[in-house]
Nucleic acid binder design. Structure first.
Length: 274
DNA sequence: CGTACAACCTGCACGC
DNA sequence: TGCGTGCAGGTTGTAC
């Protein structure tokens, strides 16, 4: 599922629902969720209060009292849902937090089981592998820093944008869409792009991410927010999932190609690899 | 250092 | 209807 706008939508949904609520119990239905955590970890959470919810790239950090932080990564199909506890348990509800009022659950659901939920001490979580190496936040990086980043490496732009240590938060949909808007070929080398073009790309990335957040993300498959509702940005996709359809700008059939073992969607006419 | 690919899982769309 | 194939919003480890 989830790239930066979807994760940000989940984070905002959590802030509106679980903040200041107390966990009464946690039940686990997957040994995979357990495997990165110390034995009996869920008991540590009993009686703890949700203090704060943060995002770093595509990572969700849920702080609790007692110097504890839940580090959640949704990977492809992970979901966090806030719902009445009477709702039917789904076979892919892997982790269920019962809140103290007993009327609601926070559930981690993931049918592909790639997602991760791990418990750390708050003051140690950001130095964990997977979080320390993250690149800059695309909504915070300034245009000149963005240009320097691109000049510092020589690699294909599409895999670079997907590399979370290069820049954190973009995924396959938003990289294809921003490259299209910027008329950049996905194989174009990062250090071969002019500064004005990079400034344009920087602008498109920020504008697109903000709009996608406003529309609560893109739902092309199973993605949904904490309240179970899908996002609205899929209406604005120009290239992703449109292989063979005419380019909106020039009418050329859009193409899909494997680049860096991910499919890249682009217009072969508008996005030349000069 | 950059690139390519398999692996981790389940489900769905598609062709036959 | 059933079966095989390919594909999926992400990340990691390994090999060249």
């Amino acid at each position: 599922m989830p790239e930066l706008p979807e994760v940000e939508t989940v984070v905002r949904g959590l802030r509106q629902t679980i903040l200041n609520k107390t966990i009464s119990s946690v039940s686990i239905d997957s040994p995979k969720i357990d495997r990165d955590n110390p034995p009996g970890w869920q008991k540590t959470l009993h009686g703890k209060v949700f203090l704060n919810v943060r995002r770093r790239g595509k990572n969700i950090l849920i702080d609790l009292i007692g110097n504890l932080t839940l580090w959640v990564h949704l990977k492809m199909t992970g979901h966090l849902y806030f719902m009445p506890s009477k709702n039917k348990i789904d076979k892919h509800d892997l982790l269920i937090f019962t809140l103290k009022d007993n009327s609601h659950h926070l559930r981690f659901n993931d049918y592909r089981r790639f997602g991760r939920v791990r418990l750390f001490k708050t003051d140690q979580v950001m130095s964990q592998k997977g979080l320390v190496e993250l690149g800059p936040e695309p909504l915070e990086i300034k245009s000149d820093e963005f240009m320097e980043l691109f000049k510092s490496k020589r690699r294909m732009i599409k895999p670079a944008l997907l590399d979370q240590t290069f820049i954190a938060g973009l995924g396959n949909i938003y990289t294809d869409e921003t490259l299209y808007l910027s008329r950049l070929h996905p194989r174009r080398l990062t250090d071969s792009i002019s500064k004005p073009k990079l400034a344009e790309l920087h602008g498109h990335i920020q504008k697109m991410l903000r709009k996608a957040i406003r529309l609560m993300g893109t739902s092309v498959d199973s993605y949904a927010g904490v309240n179970g509702r899908p996002g609205g940005f899929q209406k604005y996709l120009n290239v992703y999932g449109r292989e063979g359809e005419p380019c909106i700008r020039c009418g050329t059939a859009l193409r899909r190609e494997k680049i860096g073992s991910r499919s890249a969607h682009f217009c072969p006419n508008c996005q030349r690899n000069r």
